[in-house]
């Protein structure tokens, strides 16, 4: 059962898929709506326990969405078990929010989308905005009844790119959403982030540098569509019909950009390369460019 969309937020009406966002006001009014499940997904694994939006369940990107052994997401069985345990039904409306301007919330939304969960939305502004507005939080466990979520095969072709897909993609737009320091090759990690093991620094040849943060306002909400058009169409040169791959370091910041390109600007073919720099920067024999120049696109390899 799905819940009505947030039709009352003026800014959303400019987006390609306005139904993918809800405002804090909307969520406040719909806290008890049947068919709505609120999900918190944070970088900090304990933040939810310090207090969360009433009724929200926690989904941790690292310990729950990733397979514990293989570097991959959980499979259809694993996702069904996770959803059932969290009390999420296949036709529920899911609203995800989190810390760090919704990085991990966007990442979770993208993973939900790999499994074709239909109605999954982001809370514009995420956890920080909810807290900044002094809205209610609770440490009370939500106690949702388990559901019987179907086993759905993960679709890795439509929204997800692997390393070989990137090699075959040359000549089409690539968006590097990391910091300028990482793009240039001055460092392999985000400023103030831990070393996660990439052996080379720089960027994938021909990738445009558009740090993820250019899509958000100071309060963590997404910029209005006109400003997003300026960043991604005018500055980065993306056009309707483009086949785009976005990447970052482990795929979380690029999920955020994927959300902007696909759902807010309406580009149809956008994939997230979740292997991102921690794979590319350690991969043997793949081309890399250092410095501010994008570099020419190599011949695609099939």
């Amino acid at each position: 059962m799905t819940v009505e969309v947030d039709a009352g937020t003026e800014k959303f009406t400019g987006y390609a898929n306005p139904n993918r966002l809800v405002s804090t006001d909307w969520l406040q009014e719909h806290l008890d709506s049947p068919g709505l499940v609120i999900v918190e997904s944070d970088e900090d694994v304990l933040l939810y326990e310090t207090g969360h939006i009433p009724g929200a369940v926690k989904v941790d990107w690292h310990t729950e969405l990733n397979d514990p052994v293989t570097r991959d997401y959980v499979d259809g069985d694993g996702f069904a078990a996770l959803m059932s345990r969290k009390g999420i039904a296949r036709d529920d409306t899911v609203v995800i929010y989190g810390d760090k301007s919704n990085w991990w919330a966007a990442y979770a939304l993208w993973v939900f989308s790999l499994f074709g969960h239909k109605d999954v939305r982001l809370l514009d502004g995420g956890r920080d905005k909810w807290i900044a507005e002094d809205r209610e939080t609770t440490t009370e466990a939500p106690g949702r009844a388990a559901t019987d979520y179907p086993v759905v095969t993960r679709d890795d072709a439509t929204l997800r790119a692997f390393r070989d897909d990137v090699l075959a993609h040359f000549g089409n737009p690539l968006i590097d959403v990391r910091s300028p320091e990482e793009y240039r090759g001055d460092r392999t990690t985000a400023p103030a982030y831990p070393e996660e093991g990439a052996l080379r620094a720089g960027h994938i040849p021909s990738a445009a540098s558009v740090p993820w943060g250019r899509a958000v306002a100071d309060d963590g909400t997404f910029l209005p569509v006109a400003e997003l058009e300026g960043v991604y169409r005018s500055d980065a040169g993306l056009r309707d019909g483009d086949d785009v791959i976005a990447y970052c370091r482990i795929g979380e910041r690029s999920s955020h950009t994927w959300f902007v390109l696909h759902h807010l600007l309406g580009l149809e073919h956008v994939r997230n390369y979740d292997g991102s720099w921690t794979e590319w920067g350690s991969s043997v024999g793949v081309p890399i460019v250092v410095g501010d120049d994008r570099g020419a696109a190599p011949e695609p390899r099939s």
């Binding site: 900090d44 694994v45 304990l46 933040l47 326990e49 310090t50 810390d99 920080d128």
Partner: peptide, 9 residues
């Protein structure tokens, strides 16, 4: 910061 309980822990 309070927003980083794991690190505080």
């Amino acid at each position: 910061p309070r927003e980083a309980p794991t690190t505080r822990g």
